[in-house]
Simulated assay, not measured.
Amino acid sequence: MRVDLKDEFKDLPTNSIAENLIRFRKLNNLTQKELSLLTGINKSSISKYERGELFPSRKNSIILADFFRLDTKYFHDDYF
């Protein structure tokens, strides 16, 4: 069962995409592999997102935001 994080974090400033993904994944007690299986995003990509080596595509940022029930601002930056 996923933790609904929307209310708990709605007023916090967004950190880096990597920090946000690690925080929300761990709050839901998920491994990278489990998150990959649940979202359909390649585990290698999730690992690279968390290391800051790769930024999620718009599509994947939407998938992650929907999964964690958050705004896409936590996983997407138009600059990148």
Rank of each mutant, 00 (worst) to 15 (best):
R2F: 05
V3H: 11
V3M: 14
K6C: 03
E8S: 13
E8W: 02
F9C: 03
F9L: 11
K10D: 02
D11A: 00
D11R: 01
D11Q: 02
L12S: 09
P13F: 04
P13D: 11
T14C: 12
S16W: 04
I17E: 06
A18S: 15
E19C: 00
L21G: 08
R23Q: 06
R23Y: 02
F24R: 02
F24M: 08
F24N: 05
R25F: 07
K26H: 13
N28A: 01
N29L: 10
Q32L: 12
Q32W: 07
E34M: 11
L35G: 08
L38K: 14
T39K: 03
T39N: 08
I41A: 06
I41H: 05
N42Y: 09
K43P: 11
S45C: 13
I46E: 11
S47Q: 10
K48Y: 10
Y49D: 09
Y49A: 10
L54D: 11
R58V: 13
R58E: 14
R58S: 12
K59D: 14
K59P: 02
N60R: 01
N60V: 00
I62L: 11
I62E: 14
I62R: 06
I63K: 12
L64Y: 06
L64P: 06
A65S: 15
D66A: 09
R69G: 06
L70F: 08
T72Y: 12
F75S: 00
D77Y: 05
D78T: 06
D78V: 06
